[in-house]
């Protein structure tokens, strides 16, 4: 590995996923505050969406590694 363009690519992927998952988490908190009774549904959907965002970041990370 070492310090290289790969590291920059990995960092960018991490930043992107961080912003994305942060948005999801924040909005989910808003939604739970508004409707505490729907916490189960909101949590399940939050994890699902976060996992999908993470997927995009993971693809970026793998491409950064192998290219």
């Amino acid at each position: 590995m070492g310090g290289s363009i790969t590291a920059i690519g990995l960092a960018l992927a991490a930043i992107g996923a961080g912003i994305g998952i942060g948005q999801i988490g924040g909005r989910a908190m808003d939604a739970i505050a508004r409707q505490p009774e729907a916490v189960g549904d909101i949590r399940a959907n939050m994890i699902l969406t976060a996992a999908l965002v993470e997927g995009a970041a993971l693809i970026a990370m793998v491409l950064a590694y192998i290219l």
Binding site: A51, E54, G55, L58, I59, M61, V62
Partner: peptide
């Protein structure tokens, strides 16, 4: 193919 591919990578990573 991307769907199972991310499934694989997510757990691994």
């Amino acid at each position: 193919f991307i769907k199972p591919f991310t499934l694989m990578l997510r757990l691994f990573a």
